[in-house]
Each structure stands twice: as C-alpha cells, then as structure tokens.
Write a protein that binds this DNA or RNA. Structure first.
Length: 445
RNA sequence: GUGGUAGUAGCUCAAUGGCAGAGUACUUGAUUGUGGAUCAAGUGGUUGCGGGUUCGAGCCCCGUCUACCACCCCA
C-alpha cells in the first residue's frame, strides 16, 4: 500500500512533548505576569473577514497574509490573523458596551505570516500581547515596559535591553531636518538600519533615496543625540526646539521615564534610542523593542502606542498602547543559553508505579489510583514484554521520571511501599498511607 | 519575494565517478528485587525527491522540496 511521505508546510513546526513542556513553562510564566499586572484574557478566532485585516498594516505586510476559503463558497473572503492587535481593535469596537474601560486584555495565540523562514522566524508563531485601551497617559506605556522587564527577569534573561523611541519625535526630526512628508516612510526604513550599517551607512542610504545632502547631515546630527538615560532626551530637545511635534514626543518620553522610575524598573534594562523604528504603520507615539545584546535574533519583543487604529472600526478612536512578547524567540534563545530550570522539559509524570509480578499487578494498579486521587501525576508501568524491574527503572530513567515506586511481595506483606529517587539513588520505605506525602517531599521544588 | 550554503542510518558525520561506513542511539544478553558505567552480539539506508550525463552517480548537470545564512520585513 503506497503511503504519503510525512512532511510539514514550510515554516510550520510540530512540538514533541519535551519541547512542549518547555513552551508551557514560558507561556505559563508570561500568563502569570500578565495576571500580576491586571490583564484579562481574550480569545478571538484564527480567521477574520478579509476586510477586517486588509488596509491596516501597509502594502508590504499585507502580501504576507494567508488568505483562506472553503471549497464551496466564494462569499465572505477570509484571512488568517496576521497579529493580535487588529483583532483587538475589532473586538473593542464591536463590544464596547460590554467592556469596562480602561480595557486591559492579554491574548496568547498563534498568528500567521507568509515570510521566508529562518531561525526565530516562522510562518506560524505565538504572540503574547498585552494592551491597554482607553488610556492616553504615558503611565500605560510605562506599565507595559515594566511588565516586559518582569517577564524577562523571571525567565532569567540578563543580556537584554528595551529600546524606547517615539514616532512623534521621529516625524519631528524628519520635518525639522527638511525631509518631505512623502519620504518619511523611506526615512524610517533607513534609520532603522542604524545598528546594522552604522551612521555612514544610513547617511549614504538617505542620499541614495534622493534626500538633499544638507538635510541628511542635519538628520544625522539629530539621530546621534545619544546619551545615558535622560541625557539623550536633553540633547535631542536642545537640537529640536523648532519642531512642535518633536517637543511633544520628547515630553511624552520624559513623562514615561518618570513613571518607569516610580515603577522601579532597573535602568540597565532600558534606554532611549532615536534610531529605533518599528515597521508597522499604525504606531503614533512611544514605541519600544527588546533585543538580546548577543545579537543573532532580531527583536524579541515590540510594541507601542497606536491611538488611531481603533478608529478604523469606530466613529471615534480610543487611545491605546500595547506590547507583543515574542515567545518563539524567547524559547530559541533560552535553548541556546540553557535558561530552563533543571526539572523543566522531561515529563509531566512525577512517579512511576512499577509492576513487580503478575500476582501484584492489581495491588500496584490500586496504588496508582490512590496516588492519582491524592493529586500526584502518576504513570502505571504498561510496556509489553517480561516484567523485569530493571526494564522499568530504565524506562523511568530515560523518560526522566523522578520517582519510582516499588510494591513487591515483601512490601505488600508489611503494608509498606518503597520509593527510589533516581537523581541520587536514595531509597525510602514508608507506610502505604503516607506515600503521597512522602512523594511530595522527595520531588524537586 | 531576492541572493547564497547545505541535505548520506533516529542523531552527529565519513566515503578520488568504482562493494555505502564510523561514532552515538536503539534491541538482546552478561545481570530472576533496581536505571546511569563496562563488555559482547544484533537491527537499522530507494544517499530529501524527480529527471539528465556516464560502462558505472552519494559524488557531475538541471529542476524541485526543506533547513540555515544574508537581504526584505518582523515576534
């Protein structure tokens, strides 16, 4: 009988149990922090109406959207969600009477983009978004940075920095330097490469885009108004007194900095960087992006304020700011850096109950049932073949089950159970009734 | 979407155009109340897939798929 070669579409992945347990650890950590900051869960469908998604991201991005249909209809063209932000905007406009504002929601769910895959970059990937709808204050933006830094710390990241900029400042810079409004998008694209191609590279690219050399020179001075902490803002402000929009952007960043200080965010985790630009067209105010200092991965988180987006679905927009945590990149980096706690990633099983012989199988089965009733994740040995304790231990060892429970004829006669902890080969014998407590005591913290 | 590198046993990799191999993993045994270590034996392949050149192709050529890298863009 002919069979199909098993394979996956490009950029899509399976996750076997060990990898899945590591993913769960990261997602659970993120969810706990979301709750800690008072965000509520939201779920939306994988598919949206095509019209909901198109016209929100810009032409380049929209070529990456997966479109969907079923075999019998060409009505209601559909598309797979490209991010979680536009679905949020739709939900806010659709259910505004049912929501309590400010609306703080989080969503952890897969999104799809038809990009050419690479490490840390897939066609199906999870985003973990937290957004605050209905707050124009920079207090909201500062909370998102605080939340992000908390997640990064909880996962064990050290060599990470959150770069912060402001769209108004970038626009103001461009206008102040004399860049035509129509060329602002080109300007952003080139400026964003500052890290990669350096000041000279950016200047060259800007000239190549037809921007006058004198304008480019002014632009480069503005961009390089760097400095530690608030000093960068002082330098930029001095240079850009003439631009109302730039002054507004700087004032927002100062405001944000005050809230961040009060939130006790370690200053080593963030910096103001006027060369950081985010691609998505809908940002209007502060923007932020986290990068691993070791490089090789692009941004591991990104977000910003998009005060106009909800206006695409509603008469009046609502001020909104949001952040997206790139857990796929967290996970790839954590694999590289070995940041998982030792007990994450083996198995969910806490104890294996062995079968000593056919005569004692029923007793072992009853014991497994007792352990499960007591809340312990318990596997009862079931592999086919001869019942040899050696095999059963080997099975537990390979599967990284921490505890092995032995109930042989001697133990049954005495009303006790023997437990071996594989990590240190220690054996403990306890009265049967005490077994659940004993197992809990022996498990890794 | 553009350009580049690679693909051989489950995994990591060998093999001048001339018999497709090693390490590791896996199975069994040494070991009839106990995993890891050691020793022995064994299983495992349409060399990603499809064409072409050649007496002969893992190796050369074309196409294709996938992964990775650099762009583009982004989580």
């Amino acid at each position: 009988m002919p069979h199909l070669k098993p394979r996956l579409p490009r950029g899509f992945r399976d996750f076997l149990p060990e990898a899945m347990l590591k993913r769960d650890y990261v997602i659970t950590t993120v969810r706990e922090v979301f709750h800690r900051y008072g965000f509520e869960p939201l779920q939306t469908p994988v598919l949206e109406l095509r019209e909901t998604l198109f016209g929100k991201y810009g032409e380049d991005a929209e070529q990456l959207i997966f479109e969907a249909q079923h075999g019998r209809s060409d009505k209601d063209p559909l598309a797979m969600r490209y991010d979680l932000t536009v679905p949020l905007a739709r939900v806010v406009a659709q259910y505004e009477n049912d929501l309590k504002f400010p609306f703080r929601r989080y969503q952890i769910a897969p999104v799809w983009r038809g990009e050419r895959p690479q490490r840390g970059r897939y066609r199906e990937f999870y985003q973990c978004d937290a957004d605050i709808v209905g707050v124009g204050s920079m207090a909201a933006d500062a909370e998102l940075i605080s939340l992000l830094v908390t997640v990064l710390q909880r996962l064990g990241f050290v060599e990470v920095v959150v770069k912060i900029n402001n769209r108004k400042l970038l626009t103001g810079m461009g206008q102040y330097a004399g860049v035509e409004t129509a060329q602002l998008a080109d300007l952003y694209r080139s400026v964003d490469k500052f890290d990669k191609i350096g000041a000279d590279g950016v200047a060259e690219e800007l000239r190549g885009r037809g921007i006058a050399p004198a304008v480019v020179a002014r632009m480069m001075t503005l961009l390089q108004a760097q400095g530690p902490g608030l000093a960068a803002l002082d330098a930029a402000e001095t240079l850009m007194q003439g631009s109302a929009e730039a002054r507004e952007g700087i004032a927002e960043l100062r405001d944000m900095a005050q809230h961040m200080a009060a939130l006790n965010i370690p200053p080593a985790f963030y910096e103001f960087d006027f060369t950081m630009v985010r691609g998505l067209g809908y940002y209007t105010g502060p923007i932020f992006e986290a990068v691993f200092k070791g490089g090789g991965m692009g941004s591991i988180s990104g977000g910003g304020r998009y005060d106009q987006l909800i206006g695409m679905f509603r008469k009046e927009s609502l001020p909104t700011t949001g952040i997206s945590l790139g857990i796929e990149r967290f996970i790839d980096l954590m694999d590289d850096l070995n940041l998982y706690p030792a007990h994450i990633g083996g198995t969910v099983v806490q104890a294996l109950v062995t079968i000593f012989s056919e005569d004692t199988r029923a007793e072992s089965t009853r014991l497994a049932a007792e352990l499960r009733a007591a809340g312990l994740c318990t596997e009862l040995y079931m592999a086919e073949g001869k019942l040899k304790l050696g095999k059963q231990f080997e099975y537990a060892d390979k599967k990284r089950i921490p505890l092995v429970v032995i109930l042989g004829s001697d133990e049954i006669a005495q009303g006790v159970v023997k437990v071996k902890r594989l990590a240190d080969a220690s054996e403990t014998t306890v009265p049967r009734a005490d077994l659940p407590a004993a197992l809990r005591h022996l498990l890794p913290a």
